[in-house]
Design a protein around this nucleic acid. Sequence first.
DNA 1: AGCACGCCGACT
DNA 2: GTCGGCGTGCTC
Length: 679
Amino acid sequence: MKEFILQVALDAPLDFCFDYRWEGAPGADVLPQVGQLAIVPFGRREVAGMIVGIGDQTDVPADKLKNALAVHRQLPPLSREWLALCRFAADYYHRPLGEVVIPALPKNLRGLKTVSLDRALKKLNKPREAHNATPANVPALNPAQQDAADAIAGATGFAPHLLYGVTGSGKTEVYLHAAATILSQANNHDNPAQILIMVPEINLTPQLEGNIRARFPNVMVATLHSGLAEGERLGNWLAAHLGHARIILGTRLALLASLPHLKLIIIDEEHDPSYKQQEGLRYSARDLAVWRARQLAIPLVLGSATPSLETWHHAQSGRYRQLDLRERAVRDAVLPTVRLINMEHDKPFEGITSTLLAALKLRLDRGEQSLLFLNRRGYAPVLACDACGWISNCTRCTAFMVLHKPDHRLRCHHCGLEHRIPKACPTCGNVDIQPLGRGTQRVEEGLQSLLPTARLLRIDADSTRRKGSAQAAFDSVHRGDVDILIGTQMVAKGHDFQNLTLVGILNPDTALFSQDYRASERLFAQLMQVAGRAGRVAQKEGGSASEVLIQTRYPQHPLYAAIIAHNYDRFANELLAERRQAGLPPFIFQALLRAEARELSIALEFLHTAAAAVTQSGIIINDPIPMTMTRVANVDRAQLLVECPSRPALQAYLSVWIAALRQIKTRARWSVEIDPVDI
DNA sequence: AGCACGCCGACT
DNA sequence: GTCGGCGTGCTC
């Protein structure tokens, strides 16, 4: 009876692996393998861990060493490539390996019960023979699309591409053609291929999933996103892991799926902030995709009308190959006309200028649809008392309680605190307390009074809280049951509305002067995206083209000039020049140390100690500062930014520094984020 | 992270 | 006299 020592990575905030004893059963020839899951005792619990090494020695004293309880042997082991990807992510983001590996696996795989595995494999549709994978209903490509698809499918080795094309220029067709070519090539050589297509939010883009399934009727398509039920998640994950699924469509979490035959990665809307995980392991799925494509020596496509400045920089410098789609692929479609409405001259009533109101009436008369975009939900962002100056502050956060009129509540969007709307000022008793500012609910109310016959529909996180209600709302717009759609950024993504000819942007100015230097980049992307909802209709005979009206107090701002000209190139180049001048990303690399405690002084004291813990030339350590929103849910937060022009130098420093931070005795909770985006 | 143990305040 | 607050320490 031979005894082995398993090195097991566990999902615990401990930066090392744990050793377990494994005694092979007498006569058993099946040994545990690296890449298999083991169930092990850990403290008083039993948890799943990943076997990352097998040996016959350990430093762990015999009285501490425990036996592994079981090994998942019916599952093919995770590949060395997959483990290397996880190890890279763990190293790069300075987190324990198990914290990357274990959450990347379906929950149902992590339990003691192994029977569910067989059932999930029954449940799966058997893949049909892939040699017959002839795409159905293939539209012809224009020359630019054809060149792009050929470049991607014909690339050899690691080949990152920026597919740069405005909304409606037919990026999806390029993806599908490149995918079809790579799938068929692989099949001819009896060498299966898998293609990973990532999208920002799968729930908002059901059309893409439908298109893919229709185009590849003989290929198994699996989706991976957080909205799946656990059973479905396990089945789809297994389909990818076993190589049955040839196309995997998913959100950022799909990047960490096991894809043994991966031959192409596509990231649609690569600039989208949702590719950055904002809790736990704060990874960038886009950045990890680049690493994974390099590791496997395969092509990568980053698609966007408004690329992130990181990607744009790489394309400009020639590290990524840029593929341009300069024309709209939809026949007769023209780019929407963008006009500014100067709110200094045309004072808004109920948040709507007379120019915009007239444009809305025109669409109503013509039986066409309009979209009003306002990135602020609720009725009003704050309730205030004129008499004594009271405002509806949240008692637990550095934030206002937002007025939600339909359910008669004040609600904090940060900690969830709620109470009834007071009838009078809580401090002075004044009954005349007023909402300040305007959210989607208030716009809906005001607009209904201005246009009593119009059929309005508000789409935001509040109106679509129930499962499936967002889809129902979008369906009613498609059916033509709605004249004017009022929405937050939820309406900006994915959906094409055939009869929509007017987009009104109500109040975009706040982002122009934000402390966050990325705000203007994001605003541009958001405006382009929401404007794209309108321009998809072919120009009607005798009618005018679709129109985007932007209400602003700063019509001279260069961002708007770029929007009007549909010229992201120049705007992006100007932003890049500013970033270079100011020493901001992508010309510098950053890490952010966050600390939180019941008292701000505790967090700040920790950060000051941290700032002095390890100094090194070339590493810029900024002053610790309270976060803009200092208090959330009665916890005070502060942060410390560390910068360096060299990524390897920053990484080397972080390894030493974080080890030193672990030695600091503090009551603050802290974490380090690499490449932070919201600072 | 969990989950224990351990030592001081308001209650069945 | 107990129940329970969260500080501290450990997990192969």
